[in-house]
């Protein structure tokens, strides 16, 4: 059982949805990310997705592309991403951390070396956007054998015929991409999302978290009413970007202000089912 499995079990027992947050490792610098990571659980994040910066993020919109460029411009690297996780784990042994990104930096390090280092640092799961089930033997199967969750994306184009293949080697949770498009673009229709989540749940007992295009506490709450989790990425990354001055440095008190925004989103998610029940 991984931290992810335990966290989703706890949330299920409490009858509430998970609030999943995304930030890019090293955006705009190492210290800021570390400060945010350490503050996220207190601000209400149940699961943390940490973006592994990549020069060519094909599935991401302008916000997350820009965050990766900022990070890389300030010396971010896979080793530093793993170091951030290791430092976070010094103070928090229960909040699951999922690394999210693209395959090349992992492949370049070598899958075996990467998996060893990720587990050592305290990573719980991986989301690798450009590895569909057709390429499972690359990383998904070795990661599962090494004890990491491999979280698969399901999308509106994943039909019922394809869904079993997509879910076959998925663990931890299923990430439903609520729109056809890139991160941070159009917002999903709650009604479509509900139907999609129900469709996926007919095929799996895993929790289903929904992301792409969720920007406000209200939208997050709406998603959290039907899904097991709501993922917010671009909106948090935008809140970070707003705090960066012309010199590329964060304004004083920036981490606290970003965490305050995260807190509002968290309240939206956590109050969702209570509000629906009343």
């Amino acid at each position: 059982m991984t931290r992810l499995d335990r966290r989703f079990d706890e949330l299920k027992a409490q009858g509430r949805a998970a609030f999943v947050t995304f930030i890019t490792a090293g955006d705009p610098d190492f210290e800021t990310t570390l400060g945010l990571l350490n503050g996220l659980p207190g601000a209400g994040a149940d699961v943390i997705e940490l973006g592994m910066p990549f020069t060519d993020p094909m599935a991401d919109g302008p916000s997350i592309q820009a965050s990766a460029q900022r990070a890389l411009g300030n010396g971010a690297s896979m080793m530093k991403t793993l170091e951030l996780v290791r430092r976070f784990r010094e103070n928090d042994n229960s909040t699951p951390i999922v690394l999210m990104g693209y395959y090349n930096p992992i492949y370049h390090m070598s899958v075996e070396t990467f998996l060893g280092r990720a587990i050592e640092a305290g990573v719980d799961g991986l989301i690798v956007v450009d590895l569909p089930p057709e390429e499972d033997d690359e990383l998904c199967v070795p990661a599962m054998k090494a004890g990491l969750n491999f979280i698969r994306l399901a999308t509106p184009t994943t039909d019922d015929k394809r869904l079993p293949a997509v879910l076959a080697n998925t663990s931890g949770f299923v990430y439903y991409v609520s729109i056809t498009g890139i991160t941070g673009s159009a917002s999903p229709q709650a009604r479509n999302v509900e139907a999609a989540v129900n469709r996926i749940k007919r095929h799996t007992a895993l929790p289903v978290a929904v992301g792409f295009g969720i920007k406000t506490p209200e939208q997050a709450a709406e998603i959290a009413r039907t899904a097991d989790g709501a993922v917010v990425g671009s909106a948090i990354v935008d809140a970070i970007a707003k705090e960066i001055g012309a010199d590329g440095k964060m304004a004083p008190g920036a981490v606290e202000r970003v965490l305050e925004f995260v807190g509002k989103l968290a309240n939206g998610v956590h109050a969702a089912r209570k509000a629906a029940a009343e």
């Binding site: 956007v129 390429e135 994943t158």
Partner: peptide, 20 residues
């Protein structure tokens, strides 16, 4: 069938594109 020439090639795309 997997689109490979030896170890090269393949289909390293996001799930949204895979059915396409």
């Amino acid at each position: 069938e997997r689109g490979r020439f030896g170890i090269f090639g393949g289909r390293f795309v996001a799930e949204t594109l895979m059915p396409l």
